[in-house]
Write a protein that binds this DNA or RNA. Structure first.
Length: 314
DNA sequence: AATCGAGCCAACCGCGGTTCC
DNA sequence: TGGAACCGCGGTTGGCTCGAT
């Protein structure tokens, strides 16, 4: 069955609404209510499609619509709700008073999505990505190092230390992936002692190599966040990722080794982005080179120990 | 001053679900 | 009960703005 067009496309007006049209529509709805949207244009004296009238009213003219920039709280809420409901914009909009689904959708696509990508978080799965965009990170880092004027607001928002920390986390992922794929099992003890400076890494390595590792090994956020200024807590709790990992009332994050932060590939949608796959960095000389390019030794604190790890693995 | 490109967002399109007759 | 009409949603488009060159 072919659906009949909702209005005569040849004669009906399209495009931006004029203030006169807005006034007519507003006045009519305030007086009579929307009723049947299809009949509304005729009754109101508008040469518009009913669908267009409905959209104009719900997205712009409705009196309860809030205007202006999204607040940080609203942004956090959107991220949280998106992690729960996905692209169900109308559902998300019901939780944000005065915001329309269209407005939220636009804000997500133009702001939040990019922000998450720059943080190495997949905006579809809300998880840390493993297919790293190190070249982009290098660009950002170098730009900041050179004191260039960064015009991208998100780049400028990323302080130098943040970039270093993001790099650290991403290198962590690369290392752990390399470890899990390589013939390094025999060296696990020495690796573990090296990685021991970082409970997160130890926990992950333990999970990788010891499937039966006790679930009762619980790390507190204080331990977990050693070496990270940008904490997983921030990523998981504050950014609203929903992984069923409990955040205790005092704000500390608790998860056990069987629930170590999952390392996930980018979702298919994000794979379309020009990123570099993990395999690019699977051999250690490339990884070392990437690390050198990032000038991490100048950026990160000495306790991180990534250089030791690389030396040991080489 | 002109041109170009990126970012943004209002508006449109097409589809699926629901309601009505 | 089934088909037509209607509504609402999510994805996409197109035009405007603004900064860079």
């Amino acid at each position: 069955m072919v659906r009949a067009p909702c209005c005569d496309e040849a004669t009906v007006k399209k495009g931006p609404w004029t203030t006169e049209e807005d006034e007519i529509l507003k006045e009519y709805i305030e007086k009579h209510g929307p009723g049947n949207w299809r009949n509304l244009p005729t009754k109101a004296g508008l040469n518009r499609c009913g669908k267009s009238c409905r959209l104009r009213w719900t997205n712009y003219l409705r009196p309860d619509i809030k205007r202006g920039k999204f607040t940080d709280d609203e942004e956090r809420l959107i991220i949280h709700l998106h992690s729960l409901h996905g692209n169900k914009w109308s559902m998300i909009a019901t939780k944000l008073a005065g915001r329309t689904d269209n407005e939220i959708k636009n804000y997500w696509n133009t702001h939040i999505r990019k922000k998450l990508l720059m943080m190495g978080i997949d905006p579809v799965t809300h998880r840390q990505r493993t297919d790293l965009d190190l070249p982009n990170l290098i660009t950002v880092t170098n730009g900041l190092n050179l004191g260039n004027n960064i015009t991208n607001p998100f780049e400028s928002a990323l302080r130098l230390q943040d970039v270093a920390n993001l790099a650290k986390m991403q290198l962590n992922n690369v290392l752990l992936q390399a470890i899990s794929q390589g013939p390094l099992l025999a060296n696990f003890d020495s690796l573990s002692s090296i990685l021991g400076i970082n409970a997160l890494q130890t926990g992950l390595v333990s999970s990788i190599f010891q499937p039966n590792f006790s679930n009762s090994n619980v790390f507190s956020s204080n331990t977990l966040n050693q070496g990270f200024d940008v904490s997983y807590e921030d990523q998981i709790c504050n950014l609203g990722s929903d992984r069923n990992i409990p955040c205790s009332t005092d704000g500390s994050l608790v998860f056990n080794t069987s629930e170590a932060p999952p390392l996930v590939a980018a979702s298919p949608e994000e794979m379309a982005q020009p990123t570099v796959s993990l395999s690019t960095y699977s051999n250690l000389s490339n990884l070392s080179e990437a690390s050198e390019q990032l000038n991490l030794s100048d950026l990160v604190d000495e306790n991180f120990g990534w250089k030791d790890i690389l030396d040991q693995l080489s």
